[in-house]
């Protein structure tokens, strides 16, 4: 089937098998390997991306379902070499160790902060329940998201 989609602002057109998973389209056809695969049951969240602005798990979506979609992956977050506030938060707060869950965790956090720019600790923990991390025990991830929320708030205030 022919599909057209945009990933990080770049158009992709391809003829794909209907069964091709979106995550494999992103990794194998678009060559963007920052989106990881950690399970096959959409539990771990390592493959989380933004599709039309919403955080979704790309291992549970067929590429053909993304026809016409605007997709942002972890590689599309930084602008002109400047880290996105969520990426910066993870670096500042030691929110990662092995880094494997990190892209999905960051994309989920971006989705969460879009819906709720001022999340409480509890809201962050529940908001990230679709993303598993084995290294950090989550505390520094929660702090990373708080850091990002504050940073985004400060940036928005400045822009206003």
């Amino acid at each position: 089937m022919k599909i057209n989609l945009s990933i990080n602002g770049q158009k992709h057109e391809a003829d794909v098998e209907p069964r091709l998973l979106l995550v494999h389209f992103i990794r194998d056809l678009a060559g963007l390997t920052g989106t990881h695969v950690g399970c096959e049951t959409s539990i771990c969240g390592a493959c989380t991306i933004l599709m039309n602005g919403k955080a979704v798990k790309s291992c549970a979506i067929l590429a053909v379902q993304a026809d016409g979609a605007e997709i942002t992956t972890i590689e599309g977050l930084a602008t002109n070499g400047q880290l996105h506030p969520v990426q910066e938060g993870f670096w500042e707060c030691h929110g990662l160790q092995c880094g494997y869950c990190t892209p999905g965790m960051i994309m989920s956090a971006c989705g969460l902060l879009k819906e709720n720019p001022n999340p409480t600790e509890d809201q962050i923990r529940h908001g990230l329940e679709g993303n598993l991390c084995r290294c950090t025990g989550y505390q520094n991830i929660v702090d990373s998201v708080k850091y990002a929320a504050n940073k985004i708030k400060a940036q928005t205030a400045k822009a206003d």
Partner: peptide
């Protein structure tokens, strides 16, 4: 290590 890992380019 982190700049490459938070950008998904490791």
């Amino acid at each position: 290590e982190d700049p490459r890992l938070v950008q998904g380019i490791g």
